[in-house]
Amino acid sequence: MVSRVERGPVADWMRTADRWLIGSFVALMVIGLVMALAASPAVAERLNLSTFHFVDRQALMLVPTAALMIATSFLSPRHMRRAALVAFILSFALIILALMFGAEVKGARRWIFGLQPSEFIKPAFVVLGAWAFTEGGRKGPTAIPAKILSFVLLPLAIVPLILEPDFGQTMLVAIVWTALFFLAGLHWFWVVAVGGVGMAGGFAVFKLSPHVHERVLRFLDPDSTGGLVDTFQVDTALQSILSGGWFGRGPGEGVYKRILPDAHTDFVFAVTGEEFGMIACMALIAFFAFIVLRALTLAARNPDPFCRLAAGGLTVMFGVQSWINMAVNLRAMPAKGMTLPFISYGGSSLLALGLGMGFLIAATRKRPAADLEHPGPPDE
């Protein structure tokens, strides 16, 4: 504990940052390392790598991830906007470079310089969107440009994602933007209208993209296109969870992870079900729900409109991404290539989550009324 009379950045941070959120994120990192020990050795051996190749890399990436999260959580609202603007510009530029020069992996160009920039554009997009909606809700000379910016940000973020293509991240960004739209207090008519546009866009993608069209049809009816290739992973993941029963086979005793290609990344939840049982899966779901509810409660109590909206949007992003990953593992959705936050293996995903959750901790910090500032432009 730090005395209230002691001043300084660290002392102020320790008094104002929410310990439950910080502790929860650290706990998720530890759980992710444990699950890497359970799921990744089979994948590493299949790829002729050292047994603990992915475990070692996961452990190494946790250090900069935790450092980035803590460093970002020190930011003031104004510096959050500046950092988000820089991250958005850099991520956008790297996505364009990936489209032009990146290596094609599984039919998509998402990687450049060993990074997946689409992961980093998400938290930056949420913070900038929160600023635009907050500023657009005010009266004054900046209101109209800010409203326009809030609508320009969405296509600016999702068009490069569609070109990669990365429809999972596109869907997530669109859902978060709609949530920001709703949280900003706009009329239900416009919320329904945006939802209608989103449904129309999804139908257009289904009709115009052969990849999406075939994947959805095979998910709904595996025999409709004559093959089970596209549903192999989700089918195997569900069987993995069911085979674990209530209490699981035991640590390291999983069988399906030996044939599941992405057992350590997108389908680590299935390995959890097989080795630790349905009770562990439900406990993990409850833990994610606690984080979401805690963050939403802190956001609702925040007197600053920008911080309230940014915290709400970041929480929705975290919660929806978690839900999509678990739904895919339970065969409730087609595969999306989306990681389970802090649990799945992946350097870019971990670093981007460190950035995003650092923004969330910064936005939910307790600040005296005198410290609340007008949410001006990011470069103000």
Rank of each mutant, 00 (worst) to 15 (best):
R4C: 00
V5C: 00
G8K: 08
A11L: 06
D12M: 13
R15L: 13
L21R: 14
G23K: 03
M29T: 01
L37G: 02
R46M: 03
S50Y: 00
V55S: 02
A59S: 00
L60Y: 03
M61D: 01
T65F: 03
F74A: 02
R81Q: 12
R82P: 02
A87E: 05
I89P: 00
I96P: 01
M100K: 03
A103G: 08
E104C: 01
R110K: 04
W111T: 05
F113E: 04
L115S: 07
Q116D: 01
S118P: 07
S118G: 11
E119N: 10
K122I: 09
K122G: 02
P123H: 09
L128M: 14
A130S: 15
F133L: 13
K139A: 10
P141D: 10
A143Y: 00
A143C: 04
A143T: 04
A143F: 01
K147M: 14
S150H: 05
L161E: 00
P165V: 00
P165F: 02
V173F: 01
V173P: 06
W177Y: 13
W177A: 15
L180V: 15
H187Q: 15
V191Q: 15
V192M: 02
A193T: 12
V194F: 08
G195F: 13
G195K: 15
G202M: 12
K207C: 09
L208Y: 00
S209Q: 14
H211R: 11
V212T: 05
R215N: 09
L217T: 12
R218D: 10
F219E: 12
F219Q: 10
L228M: 13
D230R: 15
T231W: 10
F232E: 10
D235R: 14
T236G: 03
W246P: 02
F247M: 05
Y256F: 11
R258I: 06
L260F: 01
A263M: 07
V271P: 00
A280Y: 02
M282H: 04
L284T: 01
A299S: 11
R301D: 07
P303M: 07
C307L: 08
C307V: 09
L309D: 09
L309S: 12
V316R: 12
V320K: 13
I324S: 09
M326I: 15
N329D: 13
A335M: 10
K336R: 12
G346E: 04
S348D: 01
S349I: 05
L350H: 04
L351P: 03
G354I: 08
G356E: 06
G356D: 06
T364Q: 04
R367C: 03
A370G: 02
H374K: 09
G376A: 06
P377S: 13
P378I: 12
P378Y: 08
